[in-house]
Computed example of a mutant assay.
Amino acid sequence: MIARRAALGLLALPGLARAQGRPIRLIIPFTAGGSNDIVGRILAEGMSARLGQPIVIENRGGAGGILGNDIVAKAAPDGTTILLAGSGSFVISSLVHPRVPYDVANGFAPIGLLGAAPNVIAVHPSVPAGNLAELGAFARGKNPPLTFGTPGAGTTAHALGAMIALTLGFELDAIHYRGTAPALTDVVAGRVQMITNAAAPFLPFLSAGTLRAIAIAGRQRASILPELRTSFEQGFPQIDSATWYGLLAPAGTPVEATARLHAAMNATLADPVVRSRLIENGVELETSPTPADFGRFVASERERWAVIVQRANLRAD
C-alpha cells in the first residue's frame, strides 16, 4: 500500500517532464562486485520500474570514490545523472584527501537516504585471531605490520581500519584498491591479512571458510550474521562504524526532479521484495522523509567523521 501511494504520487507532481526514452545514469563510485554495487543494482531495478525509465549502472571506481563523485558533480543537472553516495566514498574521502575536484558542501543536490550496513571485521584464516582482543595481541607483536585491504583511500573501511589500529594499539599497513572486490580477492588468496566491509560480499567466503569474521563494528548484531559478536560486546565500544548509502544529484538539479527521484526511491524501499533483498545483503533500511532531511544528515555526518579523521591523523597516501 505504501509503495502504491508513493507511485501514484509520482504521477501527481505538477509540471514534471518525464523525459521518456532518456535513461538515467546511476554512478557507483566503485568497481563491480562490492557492497555498493549490490545495493545500487537492487535500488536501480526498483526505481526504474516506478519511473518508467531505464537506469543504467556505471561503475567508476578510483580514489576512494572521488572519481565517480566528480563525474556526477560535473554532469548536466537535469535529473538523468545520479550518484550512489556513501559514508566513505562521499564524506570520508573528502576529509582525508587534501583537495577534491568538486565542492562537497554545495556541489550536489540531495535525493534521499537508503539505510546503512553494519561493517564486519574479517581476517584471512592464517591470522590466529577469533576476536578483537586476539587480533590486537597478534598484531602488536607483528613486524612488518598487519596488512589491511581497503576499497580505496578515504573510504569507510580505511577510516575504520585506523579506528581499529588506534583502539587496539598496533600498526596497520593499509593497501588501497579500486573497490571491495579486488581487495577481498587478495585477502581470500592470503596476500593481504585483514579487511572490513558490509557483510554481503563476505558471505560466500565465510561459508567456505576462506575468510573469518571476528566482529561487527558497532553496538547491535547484524541479522545477516546473528552469531557474530559486536565490538561493544567484546569490550571495544570505540570501534563503531556502519556504511550508509544514499542518492545525490548534481547541484542545480530542479527540485521537481529530485522530488520525483526521492518518491521513486522511497516507493522502491517500501516494496517488501526489495526490502527483503536488501536486508539479506546486510542493509538496515532507513529512509529520509524529504531530500532536505537527507542533506542535513550528510552535513552532520561530515562533522562527525571530521573529528575521527583528525584524531586518527588520517590522510590519503
Score class of each variant (00 low, 15 high):
residue 1 M to Y: 13
residue 1 M to Q: 10
residue 1 M to I: 09
residue 5 R to S: 10
residue 5 R to T: 12
residue 7 A to I: 13
residue 8 L to A: 12
residue 14 P to N: 10
residue 15 G to H: 13
residue 24 I to E: 02
residue 34 G to L: 02
residue 37 D to T: 12
residue 40 G to W: 00
residue 46 G to N: 06
residue 47 M to K: 08
residue 50 R to E: 06
residue 53 Q to R: 15
residue 57 I to Y: 02
residue 57 I to P: 00
residue 62 G to T: 10
residue 62 G to W: 10
residue 63 A to N: 12
residue 64 G to P: 01
residue 66 I to S: 01
residue 69 N to V: 06
residue 72 V to R: 06
residue 77 P to R: 08
residue 78 D to I: 06
residue 82 I to G: 01
residue 82 I to S: 04
residue 86 G to H: 03
residue 88 G to Y: 01
residue 93 S to D: 05
residue 93 S to Q: 08
residue 95 L to A: 01
residue 96 V to D: 00
residue 98 P to M: 09
residue 100 V to E: 02
residue 100 V to N: 03
residue 102 Y to T: 03
residue 108 F to A: 03
residue 115 G to T: 07
residue 124 H to E: 07
residue 124 H to M: 07
residue 128 P to R: 03
residue 132 L to E: 00
residue 133 A to G: 12
residue 133 A to Y: 06
residue 134 E to A: 15
residue 135 L to Y: 00
residue 137 A to G: 09
residue 140 R to C: 05
residue 141 G to T: 11
residue 144 P to C: 10
residue 146 L to Q: 00
residue 150 T to M: 02
residue 164 I to Q: 00
residue 166 L to W: 11
residue 169 G to F: 11
residue 170 F to H: 07
residue 171 E to K: 15
residue 174 A to D: 05
residue 176 H to R: 14
residue 176 H to M: 10
residue 178 R to F: 14
residue 179 G to H: 02
residue 180 T to S: 11
residue 184 L to K: 01
residue 184 L to F: 04
residue 186 D to Y: 08
residue 195 I to F: 07
residue 200 A to E: 00
residue 205 F to D: 03
residue 205 F to L: 06
residue 206 L to Y: 03
residue 208 A to N: 08
residue 214 I to T: 05
residue 215 A to R: 00
residue 218 G to E: 01
residue 221 R to H: 14
residue 233 E to M: 08
residue 238 Q to L: 07
residue 241 S to C: 08
residue 243 T to I: 06
residue 254 P to F: 11
residue 260 R to C: 09
residue 261 L to N: 08
residue 267 A to M: 14
residue 274 V to R: 05
residue 280 E to Q: 15
residue 284 E to W: 12
residue 285 L to Q: 13
residue 287 T to W: 15
residue 289 P to A: 15
residue 294 F to M: 02
residue 303 E to N: 08
residue 307 V to G: 08
residue 309 V to K: 01
residue 311 R to I: 10
residue 313 N to W: 13
